[in-house]
Design a protein around this nucleic acid. Structure first.
Length: 425
RNA sequence: GGAGGGUUGGCAGAGCGGUUGAAUGCACCGGUCUUGAAAACCGGCAAGGGUGCAAGCCCUUCGAGAGUUCGAAUCUCUCACCCUCCGCCA
């Protein structure tokens, strides 16, 4: 959601931005409707004021005067009611239109239609060279009996089940990343995946307020009013809904840990084998609430942290500045972190660092009181992946494999594996 | 799943259908006093919106929504959440 006054002053900018992002907006309609609503409100309030005035004086009025006053007050109430109907319809429409205006992208965003418009801005590490034919992660897991891929007969497709030390490695990675984030001042938070659909709408990934529109992406649980969140960002974003925080409570840095559920409906046929794209996975998420003027600072911090994690895991990676068409409805800026996957001969996404501005905070009504002027402002929010499993195991297994089919464990992870240095074939 | 109790301002906590946007306490801010601090005393302290150059005036909000009434924090209904007891249970 954008600010009303901001819209008035930046019509062209918002329209261009929306177009760049691939969304249609009708600001003219919004502005006209806004004016109409303001006029109706003024009118509405006149009647209410009259009604209130009369109601107040009725108690002190004489018995003779009363009936006439009551009549008059009733009339005023009815007049207000008449306007209300119109007002409500218009306000519903207005809100819906507002909820369809995408966040404005930052000025230097590359303009593009889809992910082909993204720009590589940084490459770290070499593409791994092997003096043997490297196996893909699926083969490694299968040959070493580190996974049950036939689990899908029980669970449906896009499921995974790790075994033995591979399973242990999955948890070790999370533990390592959580420890790292705590060292950096994040508060660790275990977060439910179960949530109300409203929380998903309030995270602003999807335009509008129609819960039904989530159906294609989100799992709903029959017989309940709950669904499964695709990321802990959803719940973390609603954590301070309706609150007015004190400035000195900011920033809030959360390291959320939760299972994540995604239908992956739009990905039919893609990555059907292995660990790249599954319906249920686990993720450590970095989430920040901060003052507007510190948004950039924490964006950098979140990104740096993920880069460090890539290095800790001894992975070669690149940063991808998302173009306008790929960054999504609620974002000002997004940088993807991709790790090198040898057998696919390309970099694959492991994380996504997003600057949201006050877009989410407006939806959840999360604000803070500034020390300087005592005024209330919306907080800014940001999020980035910490680490997501099992996906990260794909580059991890492939890049660190040896000729014998073993997998070397990155040094930083070894303490989390009880000193184990290698996953033995 | 069964039975009951709750939800009021940053927090705690009053509240009769009628000057209650809401007592009181704490916290916070300003002042007096003090060498300074504390204490004491005095004053201030909700958000959103409409209107106005402004001072201001007005509207809305006491979990959410609907209703009764001239008038609702106070009465009725629905929903959400919290708590207690019983049952079940990782």
């Amino acid at each position: 959601m954008l600010d009303k006054n901001y819209i008035l002053e930046n019509v062209e900018k918002i329209e261009t931005s929306a177009k760049n992002k691939g969304f249609k907006v009708d600001l003219k309609k919004i502005i006209t409707l806004g004016d109409e609503i303001a006029a109706l409100k003024t009118e509405h309030q006149k009647h209410l004021a009259e009604k209130n005035q009369l109601s107040k004086s009725i108690q002190n009025a004489s018995a003779d005067e009363r009936p006439a006053m009551i009549e008059k007050s009733k009339k005023a109430g009815e007049n207000a009611k008449k306007i209300e109907l119109d007002l409500e319809t218009k306000e519903v429409e207005y809100t819906e239109l507002m909820l369809h205006v995408p966040q404005v992208h930052f000025d230097d965003a590359p303009i593009g239609k889809d992910d082909t418009g993204n720009v590589v801005t940084k490459t770290v590490g070499e593409k791994t060279k092997f003096d043997f034919e490297p196996k893909d992660h699926y083969t490694l897991l299968e040959e070493n009996d580190w996974a049950n891929f036939n689990i899908s007969e029980i669970t449906g497709p896009r499921a995974y089940s790790l075994k033995g030390n591979a399973a242990r490695l999955e948890l070790a990675i999370h533990q390592f990343v959580l420890d790292k984030l705590m060292d950096k001042g994040f508060t660790m938070m275990t977060v439910p995946a179960l949530c109300k659909p409203q929380a998903i709408l309030d995270a602003g990934h999807f335009p509008g307020s129609d819960i039904g529109a989530l159906e294609s992406d989100v799992y709903f649980l029959t017989g309940t009013d709950l669904c499964l969140a695709g990321t802990s960002e959803i719940v973390l974003n609603s954590l301070h809904r309706g609150e007015i925080l004190e400035e000195n409570q900011l920033p809030k840095l959360y390291a959320g840990y939760s299972p994540c559920y995604r239908k992956e409906a739009g990905a039919a046929g893609k990555d059907t084998r292995g660990l790249v794209r599954v319906h249920q996975f686990s993720k450590v998420e970095q989430f920040v609430y901060c003052k507007p003027e510190e948004s950039q600072k924490y964006f950098d911090k979140l990104l740096t942290t993920l880069e460090e994690i890539m290095m800790d895991l001894e992975l070669s990676y690149q940063l991808l500045e998302a173009c306008t068409g790929d960054m999504g409805f609620n974002k000002m800026r997004m940088i993807d972190v991709e790790a090198w996957v040898p057998t696919q001969n390309k970099y694959r996404e492991l994380g996504s660092c997003s600057m949201i501005g006050d877009f989410q905070a407006r939806r959840t009504n999360t604000r803070y009181r500034a020390n300087a002027d005592g005024k209330v402002h919306y907080t800014h929010t940001l999020n980035n992946t910490g680490i997501a499993t099992p996906r990260v195991l794909v580059p991890l297994l492939e890049n660190h494999q040896t000729k014998d089919g073993d997998v070397k464990i990155p040094t930083k992870l070894q303490p989390y594996m009880h000193g184990l240095k290698t996953l033995k074939a």
